[in-house]
Design a protein around this nucleic acid. Sequence first.
DNA 1: TTAGTGTCACTGGTCTGACATCTGAACCTG
DNA 2: CAGGTTCAGATGTCAGACCAGTGACACTAA
Lengths: 245, 245
Amino acid sequence: MTRFPFKRLQSDLAVLISNTPAGAQLPSEPKLSKQLGVSRATLREAMRMFEAQGLLRRRQGAGTFVVGQVSVLDSGLEVLESLETMAKRLNIAVSVSSLRIEQVYADEELAEGLKVPKATKLVSISRIIQSEGRPSAYLVDTLPEDFLNPEDLPSDFNGSILDFLIDRGSPLTFSRAAISATGATSSVARALEIQRQDVLLKMTSQLFVADGSVVDYAVGSFIPGYFNFHVIRRVGGEQTTDKPE
Amino acid sequence: MTRFPFKRLQSDLAVLISNTPAGAQLPSEPKLSKQLGVSRATLREAMRMFEAQGLLRRRQGAGTFVVGQVSVLDSGLEVLESLETMAKRLNIAVSVSSLRIEQVYADEELAEGLKVPKATKLVSISRIIQSEGRPSAYLVDTLPEDFLNPEDLPSDFNGSILDFLIDRGSPLTFSRAAISATGATSSVARALEIQRQDVLLKMTSQLFVADGSVVDYAVGSFIPGYFNFHVIRRVGGEQTTDKPE
DNA sequence: TTAGTGTCACTGGTCTGACATCTGAACCTG
DNA sequence: CAGGTTCAGATGTCAGACCAGTGACACTAA
Protein backbone atom coordinates (compact mmCIF):
# COMPACT_ATOMS: atom_id res chain seq x y z
CA MET A 1 0.00 0.00 0.00
CA THR A 2 1.55 3.23 -1.07
CA ARG A 3 1.24 5.93 1.46
CA PHE A 4 1.07 8.84 -0.91
CA PRO A 5 -1.09 8.04 -3.88
CA PHE A 6 -0.43 11.42 -5.35
CA LYS A 7 3.23 10.85 -6.01
CA ARG A 8 2.68 7.49 -7.58
CA LEU A 9 -0.15 8.97 -9.55
CA GLN A 10 2.17 11.55 -11.03
CA SER A 11 4.49 8.93 -12.42
CA ASP A 12 1.66 6.75 -13.61
CA LEU A 13 0.06 9.65 -15.35
CA ALA A 14 3.35 10.72 -16.88
CA VAL A 15 3.80 7.25 -18.30
CA LEU A 16 0.27 7.12 -19.57
CA ILE A 17 0.59 10.50 -21.23
CA SER A 18 3.89 9.71 -22.83
CA ASN A 19 2.43 6.49 -24.22
CA THR A 20 -0.53 8.29 -25.67
CA PRO A 21 -0.22 9.81 -29.13
CA ALA A 22 -0.49 13.57 -29.32
CA GLY A 23 -4.05 14.66 -29.77
CA ALA A 24 -5.49 11.39 -28.57
CA GLN A 25 -8.09 11.22 -25.89
CA LEU A 26 -7.47 9.86 -22.42
CA PRO A 27 -9.94 7.53 -20.74
CA SER A 28 -12.65 9.33 -18.83
CA GLU A 29 -12.00 10.40 -15.29
CA PRO A 30 -14.13 7.73 -13.64
CA LYS A 31 -12.45 5.02 -15.68
CA LEU A 32 -8.98 6.40 -15.11
CA SER A 33 -9.45 6.81 -11.40
CA LYS A 34 -10.57 3.21 -11.14
CA GLN A 35 -7.79 2.02 -13.41
CA LEU A 36 -5.13 3.88 -11.44
CA GLY A 37 -6.61 3.02 -8.09
CA VAL A 38 -7.29 6.50 -6.78
CA SER A 39 -10.34 8.59 -6.25
CA ARG A 40 -11.54 10.92 -8.92
CA ALA A 41 -10.72 13.96 -6.77
CA THR A 42 -7.10 12.91 -6.38
CA LEU A 43 -6.84 12.12 -10.05
CA ARG A 44 -8.13 15.54 -10.93
CA GLU A 45 -5.59 17.26 -8.72
CA ALA A 46 -2.82 15.43 -10.52
CA MET A 47 -4.32 16.25 -13.88
CA ARG A 48 -4.38 19.92 -12.98
CA MET A 49 -0.63 19.86 -12.64
CA PHE A 50 -0.15 18.30 -16.04
CA GLU A 51 -2.62 20.75 -17.42
CA ALA A 52 -0.64 23.59 -15.84
CA GLN A 53 2.40 22.28 -17.63
CA GLY A 54 0.53 22.31 -20.88
CA LEU A 55 0.59 18.56 -21.42
CA LEU A 56 -3.13 18.05 -21.11
CA ARG A 57 -6.13 19.84 -22.43
CA ARG A 58 -9.56 19.21 -20.97
CA ARG A 59 -12.90 20.09 -22.46
CA GLN A 60 -16.05 19.73 -20.52
CA GLY A 61 -18.40 17.36 -22.19
CA ALA A 62 -15.80 16.17 -24.65
CA GLY A 63 -12.89 14.69 -22.78
CA THR A 64 -9.26 15.03 -21.84
CA PHE A 65 -6.68 15.12 -24.61
CA VAL A 66 -2.96 14.83 -24.79
CA VAL A 67 -1.61 18.00 -26.27
CA GLY A 68 0.93 17.86 -29.05
CA GLN A 69 4.31 17.26 -27.54
CA VAL A 70 6.29 20.41 -27.72
CA SER A 71 9.90 19.59 -28.18
CA VAL A 72 11.12 22.44 -26.05
CA LEU A 73 11.96 22.12 -22.44
CA ASP A 74 9.72 24.71 -20.89
CA SER A 75 10.02 24.88 -17.20
CA GLY A 76 10.04 27.25 -14.31
CA LEU A 77 13.27 27.99 -12.56
CA GLU A 78 11.83 28.31 -9.08
CA VAL A 79 12.54 24.75 -8.16
CA LEU A 80 16.02 23.44 -8.59
CA GLU A 81 16.10 20.32 -10.68
CA SER A 82 18.45 18.78 -13.13
CA LEU A 83 17.85 18.95 -16.84
CA GLU A 84 17.42 15.21 -16.78
CA THR A 85 14.71 15.40 -14.14
CA MET A 86 13.05 18.25 -15.94
CA ALA A 87 13.05 16.33 -19.19
CA LYS A 88 11.63 13.28 -17.51
CA ARG A 89 8.89 15.29 -15.90
CA LEU A 90 7.95 16.80 -19.21
CA ASN A 91 8.28 13.51 -21.01
CA ILE A 92 10.88 14.73 -23.40
CA ALA A 93 13.58 12.44 -24.57
CA VAL A 94 17.09 13.66 -23.98
CA SER A 95 20.36 11.82 -23.99
CA VAL A 96 23.76 12.56 -22.67
CA SER A 97 26.94 12.31 -24.64
CA SER A 98 30.58 13.20 -24.27
CA LEU A 99 30.45 12.73 -20.54
CA ARG A 100 33.87 13.62 -19.23
CA ILE A 101 35.18 13.67 -15.71
CA GLU A 102 38.54 15.15 -15.02
CA GLN A 103 40.63 16.84 -12.41
CA VAL A 104 41.35 20.52 -12.75
CA TYR A 105 42.73 23.34 -10.67
CA ALA A 106 40.78 26.45 -9.82
CA ASP A 107 41.34 29.35 -12.13
CA GLU A 108 40.13 32.80 -11.25
CA GLU A 109 36.51 32.28 -12.30
CA LEU A 110 36.20 28.94 -10.57
CA ALA A 111 37.89 30.19 -7.43
CA GLU A 112 35.44 33.02 -7.16
CA GLY A 113 32.45 30.92 -8.04
CA LEU A 114 33.28 28.21 -5.53
CA LYS A 115 34.73 30.56 -2.94
CA VAL A 116 37.96 28.60 -2.76
CA PRO A 117 41.59 29.66 -3.19
CA LYS A 118 43.04 29.63 -6.63
CA ALA A 119 44.70 26.38 -7.70
CA THR A 120 42.50 24.32 -5.40
CA LYS A 121 42.05 20.78 -6.62
CA LEU A 122 38.69 20.42 -8.32
CA VAL A 123 36.69 17.86 -10.19
CA SER A 124 35.11 18.91 -13.44
CA ILE A 125 32.23 17.06 -15.07
CA SER A 126 31.18 18.10 -18.52
CA ARG A 127 28.52 16.71 -20.76
CA ILE A 128 26.47 17.43 -23.82
CA ILE A 129 22.70 17.16 -23.82
CA GLN A 130 21.16 15.86 -26.99
CA SER A 131 17.58 16.59 -27.80
CA GLU A 132 15.91 15.42 -30.98
CA GLY A 133 19.21 14.01 -32.06
CA ARG A 134 20.94 17.35 -31.88
CA PRO A 135 23.26 18.77 -29.28
CA SER A 136 21.27 21.42 -27.47
CA ALA A 137 23.20 22.19 -24.32
CA TYR A 138 26.70 22.01 -22.98
CA LEU A 139 27.02 21.69 -19.24
CA VAL A 140 30.04 21.85 -16.99
CA ASP A 141 29.89 21.22 -13.25
CA THR A 142 32.89 21.87 -11.10
CA LEU A 143 33.16 20.75 -7.50
CA PRO A 144 35.88 20.75 -4.84
CA GLU A 145 37.60 17.42 -4.86
CA ASP A 146 37.13 17.01 -1.14
CA PHE A 147 33.40 17.24 -1.59
CA LEU A 148 33.10 14.88 -4.49
CA ASN A 149 35.39 11.98 -5.08
CA PRO A 150 34.99 10.87 -8.69
CA GLU A 151 35.14 7.29 -7.54
CA ASP A 152 31.96 7.78 -5.54
CA LEU A 153 30.01 8.21 -8.72
CA PRO A 154 27.96 5.17 -9.63
CA SER A 155 28.89 3.19 -12.70
CA ASP A 156 25.62 4.13 -14.31
CA PHE A 157 26.12 7.83 -13.58
CA ASN A 158 23.82 9.70 -15.90
CA GLY A 159 25.72 12.93 -15.85
CA SER A 160 23.60 14.87 -13.43
CA ILE A 161 25.63 15.87 -10.44
CA LEU A 162 22.60 17.45 -8.86
CA ASP A 163 20.60 14.23 -8.92
CA PHE A 164 23.55 12.39 -7.48
CA LEU A 165 24.00 14.86 -4.65
CA ILE A 166 20.31 14.74 -3.79
CA ASP A 167 20.41 10.96 -3.76
CA ARG A 168 23.46 11.02 -1.58
CA GLY A 169 21.59 13.15 0.89
CA SER A 170 23.87 16.15 0.77
CA PRO A 171 22.39 19.05 2.73
CA LEU A 172 21.70 21.21 -0.28
CA THR A 173 19.81 24.39 0.39
CA PHE A 174 19.45 26.48 -2.73
CA SER A 175 21.08 27.49 -5.93
CA ARG A 176 21.78 30.92 -7.27
CA ALA A 177 21.53 31.03 -11.02
CA ALA A 178 22.76 33.99 -13.00
CA ILE A 179 21.36 34.33 -16.46
CA SER A 180 23.05 35.92 -19.39
CA ALA A 181 23.62 35.59 -23.07
CA THR A 182 26.84 34.97 -24.87
CA GLY A 183 28.36 33.99 -28.14
CA ALA A 184 29.73 30.51 -28.48
CA THR A 185 33.42 30.12 -27.84
CA SER A 186 35.20 27.90 -30.25
CA SER A 187 35.30 24.93 -27.91
CA VAL A 188 31.63 25.20 -27.06
CA ALA A 189 30.74 25.76 -30.68
CA ARG A 190 32.55 22.58 -31.60
CA ALA A 191 30.78 20.60 -28.90
CA LEU A 192 27.37 21.87 -29.89
CA GLU A 193 28.03 21.69 -33.60
CA ILE A 194 27.27 25.34 -34.18
CA GLN A 195 29.24 28.31 -35.46
CA ARG A 196 31.52 30.39 -33.33
CA GLN A 197 29.71 33.41 -31.95
CA ASP A 198 26.32 31.84 -32.42
CA VAL A 199 23.92 33.02 -29.74
CA LEU A 200 23.73 31.02 -26.55
CA LEU A 201 21.78 31.35 -23.36
CA LYS A 202 24.17 31.07 -20.47
CA MET A 203 23.26 30.07 -16.97
CA THR A 204 25.84 30.11 -14.22
CA SER A 205 24.81 28.48 -10.96
CA GLN A 206 26.26 28.24 -7.52
CA LEU A 207 24.89 25.42 -5.41
CA PHE A 208 24.92 26.11 -1.69
CA VAL A 209 24.84 23.67 1.19
CA ALA A 210 23.64 24.21 4.71
CA ASP A 211 26.82 25.73 6.05
CA GLY A 212 26.83 28.40 3.37
CA SER A 213 29.64 27.03 1.27
CA VAL A 214 29.44 26.47 -2.45
CA VAL A 215 29.77 22.87 -3.52
CA ASP A 216 29.05 23.11 -7.20
CA TYR A 217 29.77 25.78 -9.76
CA ALA A 218 27.88 25.03 -12.93
CA VAL A 219 27.99 26.69 -16.29
CA GLY A 220 25.37 25.77 -18.84
CA SER A 221 25.28 26.91 -22.45
CA PHE A 222 21.92 26.43 -24.11
CA ILE A 223 20.97 26.75 -27.72
CA PRO A 224 17.93 29.04 -27.82
CA GLY A 225 14.75 27.37 -28.94
CA TYR A 226 15.40 24.04 -27.32
CA PHE A 227 14.95 25.45 -23.89
CA ASN A 228 12.43 27.86 -22.58
CA PHE A 229 13.14 28.91 -19.05
CA HIS A 230 10.75 31.08 -17.20
CA VAL A 231 10.25 32.47 -13.75
CA ILE A 232 7.22 33.71 -11.89
CA ARG A 233 7.82 37.16 -10.47
CA ARG A 234 5.66 38.31 -7.63
CA VAL A 235 4.45 41.83 -7.42
CA GLY A 236 6.35 43.20 -4.51
CA GLY A 237 6.04 46.31 -2.44
CA GLU A 238 3.25 47.29 -0.18
CA GLN A 239 1.46 44.41 1.45
CA THR A 240 -1.84 46.15 1.26
CA THR A 241 -4.81 44.24 2.25
CA ASP A 242 -6.44 42.77 5.21
CA LYS A 243 -5.51 39.57 6.85
CA PRO A 244 -7.84 36.81 5.83
CA GLU A 245 -9.55 35.34 8.75
CA MET B 1 -23.37 33.81 -10.43
CA THR B 2 -20.16 32.86 -12.07
CA ARG B 3 -20.50 29.76 -14.09
CA PHE B 4 -16.95 28.59 -13.69
CA PRO B 5 -15.73 29.01 -10.16
CA PHE B 6 -12.31 27.77 -11.12
CA LYS B 7 -11.29 30.76 -13.17
CA ARG B 8 -12.41 33.22 -10.57
CA LEU B 9 -10.75 31.12 -7.94
CA GLN B 10 -7.43 31.39 -9.70
CA SER B 11 -7.60 35.15 -9.62
CA ASP B 12 -8.76 35.33 -6.05
CA LEU B 13 -6.00 33.01 -5.01
CA ALA B 14 -3.41 34.97 -6.97
CA VAL B 15 -4.45 38.13 -5.19
CA LEU B 16 -4.43 36.45 -1.85
CA ILE B 17 -0.99 35.02 -2.41
CA SER B 18 0.51 38.22 -3.68
CA ASN B 19 -0.87 40.03 -0.65
CA THR B 20 0.54 37.52 1.76
CA PRO B 21 4.08 38.02 3.04
CA ALA B 22 6.55 35.39 1.98
CA GLY B 23 6.69 32.55 4.42
CA ALA B 24 3.33 33.33 5.95
CA GLN B 25 0.67 30.73 6.35
CA LEU B 26 -2.54 30.73 4.39
CA PRO B 27 -5.87 30.09 6.10
CA SER B 28 -6.76 26.43 6.30
CA GLU B 29 -8.48 24.79 3.39
CA PRO B 30 -11.90 24.59 5.03
CA LYS B 31 -11.75 28.26 5.97
CA LEU B 32 -10.45 29.34 2.61
CA SER B 33 -13.00 27.36 0.66
CA LYS B 34 -15.76 28.95 2.67
CA GLN B 35 -14.23 32.39 2.35
CA LEU B 36 -13.82 32.08 -1.40
CA GLY B 37 -17.15 30.43 -1.90
CA VAL B 38 -16.02 27.17 -3.44
CA SER B 39 -15.77 23.62 -2.26
CA ARG B 40 -12.62 22.32 -0.74
CA ALA B 41 -12.05 19.99 -3.70
CA THR B 42 -12.13 22.85 -6.18
CA LEU B 43 -9.92 24.94 -3.99
CA ARG B 44 -7.37 22.16 -3.82
CA GLU B 45 -7.27 21.83 -7.59
CA ALA B 46 -6.49 25.51 -7.88
CA MET B 47 -3.87 25.29 -5.19
CA ARG B 48 -2.15 22.49 -7.06
CA MET B 49 -1.56 24.84 -9.92
CA PHE B 50 0.04 27.46 -7.72
CA GLU B 51 2.07 24.76 -6.09
CA ALA B 52 3.26 23.67 -9.52
CA GLN B 53 4.42 27.23 -10.09
CA GLY B 54 6.36 27.17 -6.90
CA LEU B 55 4.31 29.87 -5.21
CA LEU B 56 2.85 27.63 -2.55
CA ARG B 57 4.18 24.93 -0.36
CA ARG B 58 1.89 22.59 1.54
CA ARG B 59 2.77 20.43 4.49
CA GLN B 60 0.37 17.87 5.75
CA GLY B 61 -0.58 18.49 9.30
CA ALA B 62 0.99 21.92 9.34
CA GLY B 63 -0.57 24.11 6.71
CA THR B 64 -0.09 25.88 3.42
CA PHE B 65 2.57 28.54 3.12
CA VAL B 66 3.51 31.19 0.67
CA VAL B 67 6.96 30.35 -0.57
CA GLY B 68 9.52 32.76 0.69
CA GLN B 69 12.73 33.78 -0.89
CA VAL B 70 16.00 33.01 0.71
CA SER B 71 17.52 35.93 2.49
CA VAL B 72 20.35 36.49 0.02
CA LEU B 73 18.45 37.87 -2.88
CA ASP B 74 19.83 41.10 -4.16
CA SER B 75 18.70 41.89 -7.64
CA GLY B 76 16.96 38.64 -8.27
CA LEU B 77 14.03 38.16 -10.50
CA GLU B 78 11.74 36.84 -7.82
CA VAL B 79 10.16 40.16 -7.15
CA LEU B 80 8.70 42.04 -10.02
CA GLU B 81 10.10 45.52 -10.36
CA SER B 82 10.87 47.85 -13.17
CA LEU B 83 14.36 48.36 -14.43
CA GLU B 84 14.13 51.90 -13.20
CA THR B 85 13.28 50.78 -9.69
CA MET B 86 15.97 48.14 -9.78
CA ALA B 87 18.56 50.64 -10.90
CA LYS B 88 17.53 53.06 -8.21
CA ARG B 89 17.75 50.39 -5.57
CA LEU B 90 21.20 49.38 -6.73
CA ASN B 91 22.26 52.99 -6.97
CA ILE B 92 23.03 52.81 -10.63
CA ALA B 93 22.42 55.75 -12.89
CA VAL B 94 20.26 55.01 -15.87
CA SER B 95 18.42 57.25 -18.25
CA VAL B 96 15.65 56.71 -20.70
CA SER B 97 15.71 57.82 -24.28
CA SER B 98 13.68 57.37 -27.43
CA LEU B 99 10.48 56.98 -25.47
CA ARG B 100 7.77 56.28 -27.98
CA ILE B 101 4.10 55.66 -27.49
CA GLU B 102 2.01 54.51 -30.38
CA GLN B 103 -1.05 52.60 -31.31
CA VAL B 104 -0.67 49.20 -32.90
CA TYR B 105 -2.81 46.22 -33.72
CA ALA B 106 -2.21 42.76 -32.33
CA ASP B 107 -0.15 40.53 -34.58
CA GLU B 108 0.13 36.84 -33.88
CA GLU B 109 2.76 37.10 -31.17
CA LEU B 110 1.02 39.92 -29.34
CA ALA B 111 -2.36 38.24 -29.59
CA GLU B 112 -1.01 35.10 -28.01
CA GLY B 113 0.99 36.94 -25.40
CA LEU B 114 -1.90 39.12 -24.31
CA LYS B 115 -4.57 36.49 -24.85
CA VAL B 116 -6.59 38.78 -27.08
CA PRO B 117 -7.91 38.32 -30.63
CA LYS B 118 -5.68 39.28 -33.47
CA ALA B 119 -6.00 42.85 -34.68
CA THR B 120 -7.11 44.08 -31.26
CA LYS B 121 -6.25 47.74 -30.68
CA LEU B 122 -3.17 47.98 -28.51
CA VAL B 123 -0.87 50.61 -27.11
CA SER B 124 2.84 50.08 -27.51
CA ILE B 125 5.44 51.83 -25.40
CA SER B 126 9.05 51.43 -26.34
CA ARG B 127 12.12 52.93 -24.81
CA ILE B 128 15.86 52.62 -24.64
CA ILE B 129 17.71 52.38 -21.38
CA GLN B 130 21.07 54.12 -21.23
CA SER B 131 23.63 53.09 -18.73
CA GLU B 132 27.06 54.61 -18.46
CA GLY B 133 26.25 56.70 -21.48
CA ARG B 134 25.61 53.71 -23.66
CA PRO B 135 22.36 52.10 -24.75
CA SER B 136 22.09 48.87 -22.82
CA ALA B 137 18.52 47.70 -23.16
CA TYR B 138 15.60 48.07 -25.48
CA LEU B 139 12.18 47.59 -23.94
CA VAL B 140 8.77 47.35 -25.51
CA ASP B 141 5.57 47.12 -23.49
CA THR B 142 2.30 46.43 -25.19
CA LEU B 143 -1.07 46.75 -23.49
CA PRO B 144 -4.69 46.56 -24.58
CA GLU B 145 -5.97 50.02 -25.32
CA ASP B 146 -8.98 49.54 -23.10
CA PHE B 147 -6.68 48.91 -20.18
CA LEU B 148 -4.32 51.80 -20.75
CA ASN B 149 -5.35 55.02 -22.33
CA PRO B 150 -2.18 56.83 -23.43
CA GLU B 151 -3.66 60.08 -22.21
CA ASP B 152 -3.73 58.74 -18.67
CA LEU B 153 0.03 58.73 -18.58
CA PRO B 154 1.48 61.59 -16.57
CA SER B 155 3.42 64.28 -18.32
CA ASP B 156 6.55 63.26 -16.45
CA PHE B 157 6.12 59.62 -17.41
CA ASN B 158 9.47 57.98 -16.95
CA GLY B 159 8.86 55.12 -19.29
CA SER B 160 8.08 52.41 -16.81
CA ILE B 161 4.62 51.09 -17.38
CA LEU B 162 4.98 48.81 -14.42
CA ASP B 163 5.64 51.65 -12.01
CA PHE B 164 2.72 53.54 -13.44
CA LEU B 165 0.35 50.61 -13.08
CA ILE B 166 1.46 50.04 -9.51
CA ASP B 167 0.93 53.71 -8.75
CA ARG B 168 -2.48 53.61 -10.33
CA GLY B 169 -3.42 50.78 -8.06
CA SER B 170 -4.08 48.20 -10.74
CA PRO B 171 -4.68 44.80 -9.17
CA LEU B 172 -1.48 43.26 -10.45
CA THR B 173 -0.74 39.79 -9.21
CA PHE B 174 2.36 38.35 -10.81
CA SER B 175 4.40 38.24 -13.93
CA ARG B 176 5.67 35.29 -15.91
CA ALA B 177 9.00 36.00 -17.48
CA ALA B 178 10.47 33.75 -20.13
CA ILE B 179 14.17 34.01 -20.64
CA SER B 180 16.07 33.32 -23.79
CA ALA B 181 18.90 34.53 -25.94
CA THR B 182 18.75 35.95 -29.39
CA GLY B 183 20.65 37.82 -32.00
CA ALA B 184 19.82 41.47 -32.53
CA THR B 185 17.37 42.22 -35.29
CA SER B 186 18.29 45.15 -37.44
CA SER B 187 15.88 47.53 -35.74
CA VAL B 188 17.02 46.58 -32.27
CA ALA B 189 20.63 46.70 -33.35
CA ARG B 190 20.13 50.23 -34.59
CA ALA B 191 18.45 51.31 -31.37
CA LEU B 192 21.17 49.83 -29.23
CA GLU B 193 24.00 50.89 -31.48
CA ILE B 194 25.32 47.42 -31.93
CA GLN B 195 25.78 45.10 -34.87
CA ARG B 196 23.09 42.93 -36.29
CA GLN B 197 23.18 39.45 -34.83
CA ASP B 198 25.08 40.60 -31.80
CA VAL B 199 24.14 38.55 -28.77
CA LEU B 200 21.24 39.75 -26.63
CA LEU B 201 19.52 38.46 -23.57
CA LYS B 202 15.82 38.42 -24.18
CA MET B 203 13.15 38.50 -21.54
CA THR B 204 9.50 38.19 -22.46
CA SER B 205 7.01 38.89 -19.70
CA GLN B 206 3.31 38.57 -19.26
CA LEU B 207 1.83 40.68 -16.49
CA PHE B 208 -1.31 39.24 -14.94
CA VAL B 209 -4.05 41.04 -13.04
CA ALA B 210 -6.54 39.72 -10.57
CA ASP B 211 -9.07 38.42 -13.02
CA GLY B 212 -6.47 36.30 -14.73
CA SER B 213 -6.13 38.37 -17.85
CA VAL B 214 -2.85 39.65 -19.24
CA VAL B 215 -2.52 43.40 -19.26
CA ASP B 216 1.03 43.87 -20.37
CA TYR B 217 3.20 41.93 -22.76
CA ALA B 218 6.75 43.09 -22.47
CA VAL B 219 9.79 42.22 -24.50
CA GLY B 220 13.15 43.32 -23.25
CA SER B 221 16.44 43.01 -25.11
CA PHE B 222 19.49 43.39 -22.93
CA ILE B 223 23.10 43.74 -23.86
CA PRO B 224 24.96 41.17 -21.78
CA GLY B 225 27.22 42.58 -19.14
CA TYR B 226 25.16 45.62 -18.25
CA PHE B 227 22.58 43.64 -16.42
CA ASN B 228 23.03 40.62 -14.30
CA PHE B 229 19.81 38.82 -13.69
CA HIS B 230 19.72 35.94 -11.36
CA VAL B 231 17.20 33.76 -9.63
CA ILE B 232 17.30 31.75 -6.46
CA ARG B 233 16.24 28.18 -7.06
CA ARG B 234 15.23 26.29 -4.00
CA VAL B 235 15.93 22.65 -3.62
CA GLY B 236 12.73 20.80 -4.34
CA GLY B 237 10.41 19.29 -1.77
CA GLU B 238 11.07 16.00 -0.17
CA GLN B 239 11.30 14.20 -3.49
CA THR B 240 12.82 12.22 -5.16
CA THR B 241 12.77 8.54 -5.01
CA ASP B 242 9.93 6.81 -6.66
CA LYS B 243 8.45 3.94 -4.90
CA PRO B 244 9.84 0.63 -6.20
CA GLU B 245 6.40 -0.73 -6.84
C1' DT C 1 -34.31 15.27 -49.39
C1' DT C 2 -32.79 18.13 -45.87
C1' DA C 3 -32.49 21.26 -42.35
C1' DG C 4 -33.84 21.50 -37.86
C1' DT C 5 -34.79 19.58 -33.26
C1' DG C 6 -35.10 16.65 -29.32
C1' DT C 7 -33.11 12.84 -26.85
C1' DC C 8 -29.62 10.59 -24.40
C1' DA C 9 -25.38 8.57 -23.12
C1' DC C 10 -21.14 10.29 -21.73
C1' DT C 11 -17.76 13.83 -20.71
C1' DG C 12 -15.57 17.05 -17.38
C1' DG C 13 -16.99 20.61 -13.37
C1' DT C 14 -18.36 21.11 -8.77
C1' DC C 15 -20.06 19.96 -4.24
C1' DT C 16 -20.82 17.43 0.20
C1' DG C 17 -19.40 15.05 3.99
C1' DA C 18 -16.64 11.76 5.78
C1' DC C 19 -12.39 9.48 7.36
C1' DA C 20 -7.09 9.02 7.46
C1' DT C 21 -2.73 10.77 8.55
C1' DC C 22 0.37 14.09 10.06
C1' DT C 23 1.94 18.21 12.97
C1' DG C 24 2.75 20.96 16.80
C1' DA C 25 1.69 22.66 21.03
C1' DA C 26 -0.46 22.10 25.27
C1' DC C 27 -0.69 18.93 28.80
C1' DC C 28 0.51 15.56 31.84
C1' DT C 29 3.79 12.62 34.38
C1' DG C 30 7.92 10.95 36.74
C1' DC D 1 12.35 19.94 34.34
C1' DA D 2 12.83 16.44 30.87
C1' DG D 3 10.16 13.27 28.38
C1' DG D 4 6.05 11.04 26.95
C1' DT D 5 0.92 11.65 25.90
C1' DT D 6 -3.03 13.78 24.27
C1' DC D 7 -5.62 16.33 21.09
C1' DA D 8 -7.22 20.10 18.10
C1' DG D 9 -6.55 21.19 13.70
C1' DA D 10 -3.98 20.95 9.38
C1' DT D 11 -3.61 18.54 4.76
C1' DG D 12 -4.45 13.92 2.15
C1' DT D 13 -7.80 10.93 0.30
C1' DC D 14 -12.10 8.98 -0.60
C1' DA D 15 -17.07 7.73 -2.31
C1' DG D 16 -21.05 9.34 -4.20
C1' DA D 17 -23.93 12.70 -6.00
C1' DC D 18 -25.60 16.24 -9.16
C1' DC D 19 -24.73 19.97 -12.74
C1' DA D 20 -23.45 21.40 -17.41
C1' DG D 21 -21.48 20.90 -21.96
C1' DT D 22 -20.82 17.62 -26.23
C1' DG D 23 -21.90 14.94 -29.92
C1' DA D 24 -24.13 11.17 -32.21
C1' DC D 25 -28.49 9.64 -33.37
C1' DA D 26 -33.27 9.36 -34.49
C1' DC D 27 -37.06 11.89 -35.48
C1' DT D 28 -39.77 15.56 -37.49
C1' DA D 29 -41.37 19.19 -40.51
C1' DA D 30 -40.59 22.19 -44.52
